[in-house]
């Protein structure tokens, strides 16, 4: 009985310790931002591997999500004779929710796991210690550019997702199902508010970008330096990022659209 309470306490302390280390790491990463401005080449290389390589999967998913939304929405809306609000439905669900959230989930799977594995392996093969030996701060040199790249890429990817989703919905709704083109756009433009919907979506994706990249970098940096440790850290990255995105999405939605 007592043993169980002790184990519970140990687990609690462990969680808080990891949280503390995570926040310290974030603090050190942010401390490297000034030094990064001297070497923008590092950032560009990371945006290439984080952003450019994710464009295809994000774009294709966005298009298909928009197309499916239009198909499903048309089926329901046509029962009420309200097919013309299809544009509003597709755009609102994409810009407010699906764009930031699904793009962030894809980002966690596509980019987060890669970052964790990369940094975990750097640690396991003692490249990070090697940098430290040469008086190069591994956090500033390796982690900061990756963090900033994630922060920049995520809102762009989410915007790409939403825009292609709207175009996919337009293609299915107007092209295949015969919704009126003008009604599709005019209803959308009348109902979607630039500040309320579009800006809040961008803010969401910024938050998700920070959280996903942070979790991925921390898991990699904190991984047990063995092949098993790296594989477990990679799994944890995807699970924790996805849960964090879904949980934060609820909180952000309640804050933004709650009243």
């Amino acid at each position: 009985m007592l043993e169980q309470v002790v184990r519970l306490g140990r687990a609690g302390i462990g969680i808080i310790e990891r949280l503390g280390r995570g926040h310290l790491l974030l603090w050190h990463i942010l401390g490297g931002l000034g030094a990064l401005s001297v070497r923008p080449g590092l950032l560009i290389r990371q945006i290439y591997s984080v952003g450019v390589h994710s464009m295809l999967i994000v774009g294709v998913s966005g298009t298909f999500v928009g197309m499916v939304l239009a198909l499903q929405g048309f089926y329901i809306l046509s029962q009420f004779g309200a097919e013309q609000t299809l544009g509003v439905m597709v755009a609102a669900s994409l810009v407010r929710e699906l764009g930031p959230v699904v793009a962030a989930l894809l980002f966690a799977g596509r980019v987060g796991s890669a970052l964790t594995a990369e940094i975990g392996l750097m640690k396991a093969t003692e490249q990070l210690s090697g940098l430290e030996m040469m008086a190069v701060n591994p956090v500033k040199r390796v982690l900061t550019p990756r963090f900033l790249a994630g922060f920049i890429s995520m809102p762009l990817l989410a915007a790409l997702f939403s825009a292609l989703g709207v175009l996919g919905g337009f293609f299915v709704g107007v092209g295949l199902l015969g919704v009126d083109e003008g009604a599709f756009w005019s209803q959308m433009q009348a109902k979607i508010d630039l500040h309320e919907d579009v800006y809040n979506g961008v803010i969401k994706s910024l938050v998700f970008g920070v959280v996903c990249t942070w979790i991925a970098l921390f898991q990699g940096y904190d991984a047990t330096p063995t092949s098993e440790g790296v594989s477990r850290a990679t799994t944890r990255t995807v699970v924790h990022s996805s849960l964090a995105v879904l949980g934060l999405d609820f909180v952000l939605t309640a804050l933004m659209f709650g009243d």
């Binding site: 825009a163 433009q189 979607i192 508010d193 579009v198």
Partner: peptide, 21 residues
């Protein structure tokens, strides 16, 4: 990277102009 940034910004612009009002 330039293409990626441009595509993202175009998407944002599209959302603001065409989807927003």
């Amino acid at each position: 990277v330039g293409v990626f940034m441009a595509a993202g910004l175009v998407a944002l612009f599209f959302l603001a102009m065409q989807v927003g009002n």
